[in-house]
Write a protein that binds this DNA or RNA. Structure first.
Lengths: 228, 228
DNA sequence: TAGATTGTTAATCGATTAACAATC
DNA sequence: TAGATTGTTAATCGATTAACAATC
């Protein structure tokens, strides 16, 4: 189908961003764009854009550029966003409840079709179109509706067992918000996306501390380098 | 202080993960570990761990390994987690409310000290220890409490203006959950962490689609390659 | 001292950027 | 046709891994 032999992870991670920017261009009424213009907008190099896209095929036209809406749907197809992967959400705590209603799953190729929690208090709670079910109903649900994605909003302690169970129930992908690091070496062809909000916040903190230190250190240097 | 000349972003992004794993080792009562053992646990190479750590200094001891709790606090210090960066959360919708109570900010070197929303309906709502304030109170609040981090849980449309305002009010770091891509070229030494949950979900979708395609393609090949 | 494991240098690998021929 | 911009190859840059001397 495509020359998609082995596309590097770095490239894949950039595709959603291209997809977003192309969407914005469409809503601005832009129908055609060159790699140079897009690069400028996105703060990357034109070379990188062309190189990335050509992992999947030649979507542009020499001397002209790229057709925005065409390119966007090509990328959407590559990402598998045109599909309708059924997903279950495990854990209806604060974060789980927020994720159940905050995201437009259809936009990302998914469809949330079940929410589960082990807590008596939460079972039966209505969240958008869905109702929280007990964990005991999970196996039966999976057999019936064959979800492929599990969104994990559970405590670290519960994660290993729940992962194991979900994998055995046929889950093909984990979107993991628990503080547990899923690796699942035993089961192959399972996709894992460990989100780790805490790691992201720590990286932010590093940046702040770094800037503060740099500033402290640069003040005396500035005097010293006045005419250097 | 350290040989922290210019540490690459890849290294920084791995530090939180080291920090987490070392925390787990501590709670398991492990007091000493070699780069080889840690590497095995974390599914990385020992070389990488040693290389990463030596960007900041020699924390180990030849012939022995690393003292777990010592190494952990060193990394914590590098990340700036031992500090207490005041943070404001902008946007108290589903995701904002969840983030306000779901995370233990103190663990990540932060302290949530204010929540703001433009909606009349949400202003006055109690979230944990805090109460949602109107956006009109933001400027005064920043002058008084000097927050350095802004957590953005606002719609894409509102983001550019709010970012601008926050930057002018002295915010040094953005933890951005809006679907807008902050770049802020004009203002330097501002740290930005664009989370983009949608991008993460799209990357997951790609993985699923990829696996499906690989499987489809491998079935006939397997027959063809039976004795090759 | 012998064994182990670090810190660090050198080799490899991969990803990004630059250059340019192909072509619309 | 001339101008523009792609697709693609080659050059550069950076990050990861391997190797080993230093040293606890």
């Amino acid at each position: 189908m495509s020359k998609n032999d082995k596309v590097s992870n770095s490239v894949i991670r950039r595709l959603p961003r291209y997809y977003r920017f192309l969407g914005e261009l469409i809503s601005e009424g832009v129908s055609k764009i060159s790699s140079r213009e897009l690069a400028e907008r996105m703060n990357v190099t034109a070379s990188q854009i062309r190189q990335d896209l050509n992992c999947f095929g030649g979507f542009g036209q020499q001397g002209y550029g790229y057709n925005v809406s065409e390119l966007r749907s090509e990328i959407g197809e590559i990402l598998g966003i045109d599909r309708d992967h059924p997903a279950v959400l495990i854990g209806a705590g604060n974060l789980g409840r927020a994720l159940s209603v905050h995201l437009d799953y259809a936009k990302y190729g998914c469809r949330l079709c079940g929410i589960f929690d082990s807590s008596e208090t939460l079972v039966g709670m209505r969240l958008g179109q869905l109702t929280v079910s007990p964990m005991s109903a999970l196996a039966g649900f999976c057999e019936k509706y064959k979800p492929v994605i599990a969104i994990l909003c559970i405590p670290k302690e519960a994660a290993p067992e729940v992962c194991e169970q979900l994998a055995s129930l046929g889950i093909k992908a984990f979107w993991n918000f628990s503080h547990y690091d899923i690796s699942l070496e035993n089961i192959s062809d399972v996709v894992i996306e460990n989100v780790h909000l805490g790691d992201s916040l720590m990286a932010l903190c590093y940046g702040i501390s770094k800037n503060e230190k740099d500033k402290e250190n640069s003040v005396p240097e500035e005097n010293g380098n006045e005419e250097a």
